[in-house]
Nucleic acid binder design. Structure first.
Ligand SMILES: [Zn+2]
Length: 622
DNA sequence: CATGCCGGGAG
DNA sequence: CTCCCGGCATG
């Protein structure tokens, strides 16, 4: 089955690249120019093209040629290895020359410019003279510039079934834990149905092995873990699927858990490089004044986002952790970690983009379009920052399968402020709509082993007031995930630095005062929110992500896996103390449902969604 | 109860 | 296949 999948996937890739927006060095001009893949050829090696690709080295097995049609109509054949773009080579593989037209994001806004100076021995930065009015010049890392204009990405997950789940749920802003598994209940039926042992237990010692059909477990396990996806197979597919991973998540041998786990502090701590540290520091300084910058960010977003289909609002400027800094932390230990956290958070913003573009999970439906799913962080990076826009037009531009179509933004008909809880764990911007769920998330995802008291958990999340846009009631529940980086910014913006855990009183739902960001008037806030909590039509899964359903799925998972985040609106829920009191052993077992919660069902692995054995954390629990 | 997920079944 | 879900087993 694997081969089949892979095979199919490969094929998909080939044809899947059609229409993709890429860039390649045009012979006639000697410059990289944006082009569209217009034809796919077979393997070949006699192709011209720039000398780029050297660096790409072994990462790729690009020996195929593709016909690229440049925007000016001309076209030519290029080896994949000479093509820059998502799924192809990254910016670092280019051989830029001065004068090259590039695009980069400056303050949330994409600007074009010409390369004024190439990275030299001294710095690896590229000097770019912006085409902008005052010919300002800036420096950027090669990987931070693009050769093609970015587009808005209207990636989003559709999430239909919340409707059914919410069954009649009316208002978003309404409250309550909302979702509840439908009904289905029934006394007992004397039929003793044997049940396979859960994967997780099977592996570790188990005392609950039922005698009857002791092999069943094996069988089910096989079905769940062995054949379909998993590791063995995906390991490799994964490897060649993520050629751009700039840094690996660590050594964990789990392919499934490319999920931003970062369970151990040490790990990620090391990941932080001086550069990001600097960023963090900067942000720390500005932190109190965060309002300013944040507000700017918002307004900017707003303005540079021309009414209808704003061009893009990408931000390559890593927005450092804005809120981590002002945390009143209890005790030295916390103080320390809090600090670290903020730093890492900032770092996370940067890395997140990369991760976003690289992680994938769920071995299961992988194998498919391997190549195509490689999103070049450099090219896309900020592009997918737009979950925000609704794109009911699943297909407007046949030419941009990959670059997501720009969707048109619509005025929300109603905005509502809702309180969300965001995980503050480094690099995790997971949002939950209830205190309980966020705690659960923290417990299950970040403190799997350690046993924390509920109050401890309070320090790992922030209350965020956000605007929920909802054209449709139930809809609000099904927020598609938003690009982490983007989302975080928004959140940061909306969230006032004033949220201090100190004011939190465990379980005191009402006690805590909601924070309303002072920096923006409701209009701003709502605008901001568009970008992060946009909704789509209920079941109109009209997304425009990947073309093949397979790829799309992969994309979704990959997306969610790369950042267990969710945007949900709804309100506080009832207590029901978090998942404490769970045989600890049980608590260690991670399952999508536990980790993401019912309200973020879209983030569950497919298996879980289908009510099948979870595969995402399968081996992790083992 | 809440979870996890097997077995079936529809599309 | 993919996607759903009834319903049973468990904690
Ligand atoms: Zn799962």
């Amino acid at each position: 089955m694997s081969s089949g999948k892979r095979g199919a996937g490969g094929g998909g890739k080939r044809s899947g690249v059609m229409g993709m927006r890429v860039a390649a060095k045009k012979e006639s001009t000697g410059w990289y120019e944006a082009a569209t893949v217009s034809e796919v050829g077979g393997a070949d090696t006699s192709m011209p093209a720039g000398e780029a690709g050297e660096m790409a080295s072994s990462i790729m097995r690009h020996s195929h040629k593709l016909r690229l049609t440049f925007d000016d109509g001309s076209s030519g054949w290029y080896l994949e290895r000479h093509i820059i773009g998502p799924g192809f080579q990254s910016m670092t593989s280019t051989s830029l020359t001065t004068g090259q037209l590039v695009y980069c994001t400056v303050g949330h806004k994409e600007m074009s410019g010409k390369v004024a100076a190439l990275p030299s021995a001294g710095s690896e930065l590229l000097q770019i003279t912006l085409d902008d009015d005052n010919g300002q010049s800036i420096s950027r890392k090669v990987e931070d510039v693009r050769l093609i204009k970015s587009r808005k990405s209207s990636r989003q997950i559709a999430d239909k079934d919340y409707l059914s789940l919410a069954s009649g749920k009316s208002d978003v802003v309404q409250d309550a834990e909302t979702i509840k598994e439908p009904p289905a209940t029934k006394p007992l039926a004397a039929t003793s149905r044997k049940r396979a042992m859960p994967l997780d237990i099977v592996t570790c010692g188990s005392e609950r092995v039922k005698s009857s059909h002791a092999f069943k477990p094996a069988k089910s396990k096989a079905t769940a873990a062995l054949p379909r996806s998993p590791k063995s197979l995906d390991r490799e597919s994964l490897d060649d699927e993520l050629p751009y991973i700039p840094m690996d998540d660590g050594e964990s041998e789990d392919s499934d858990s490319l999920v931003p786990e970062d369970e151990d502090e040490e790990e990620s701590g090391e990941l932080m490089d001086e550069c990001s540290a600097a960023l963090v520091l900067m942000s720390l300084h500005a932190s109190p004044a965060m309002r300013g910058p944040a507000a700017d960010g918002l307004t900017m977003r707003k303005t540079c986002d021309p009414h209808k289909d704003a061009g893009f609002f990408s931000s390559s400027i890593p927005t450092p952790g804005l809120y981590g800094s002002s945390w009143p932390v209890p005790g030295g230990k916390m103080a320390e970690s809090g600090r670290r956290r903020s730093a890492r958070q900032a770092y996370g913003n940067t890395m997140r983009e990369w991760r976003l573009a690289s992680s994938s999970d769920e071995g299961i439906e992988m194998g498919s379009t391997s190549g195509s799913s490689q999103l070049d962080p450099c090219m896309l990076d900020h592009d997918y920052s737009l979950g925000t826009v609704s794109s009911e037009s699943t297909q407007d531009s046949p030419m941009e399968p990959y670059t997501f179509q720009r969707a048109r933004k619509q005025r929300p008909s109603n905005c509502n402020m809702v309180t969300m809880f965001q995980c503050t764990w480094p690099e995790c911007y997971h949002m939950e709509n209830s205190r309980n769920t966020i705690k659960r998330h923290i417990e299950n995802v970040h403190f799997t082993s350690a046993v924390l008291r509920s109050e401890d958990l309070d320090f790992y999340y922030n209350e965020v007031e956000t605007v929920a846009y909802s054209g449709d009631p139930c809809d609000s529940l099904s927020t598609p995930s938003t690009p982490p980086s983007e989302e975080k910014e928004m959140i940061d913006a909306v969230m006032d630095s004033s949220s201090s855990p100190a004011t939190i009183d465990r379980h005191g739902y009402g006690t805590r005062h909601r924070q309303r960001s002072t920096m923006s008037c409701s209009s701003d806030a709502s605008t901001a929110n568009f970008s992060r909590s946009f909704k789509y039509a209920p079941s109109s899964s009209g997304i425009t992500i990947p073309r093949s359903s397979k790829l799309r799925r992969h994309y979704n998972e990959w997306q969610s896996a790369s950042a267990p985040q969710a945007d949900k609106y709804s309100d506080l829920v009832s207590p029901s103390g978090s998942s404490s009191h769970l045989s600890k052993k049980m608590r260690d077992i991670k399952k999508c449902r536990k980790v993401y919660g019912m309200e973020n069902r879209e983030q569950w692995c497919t298996q879980c969604k289908w009510k099948k054995a979870c595969t995402r954390f399968a081996h992790e629990n083992a």
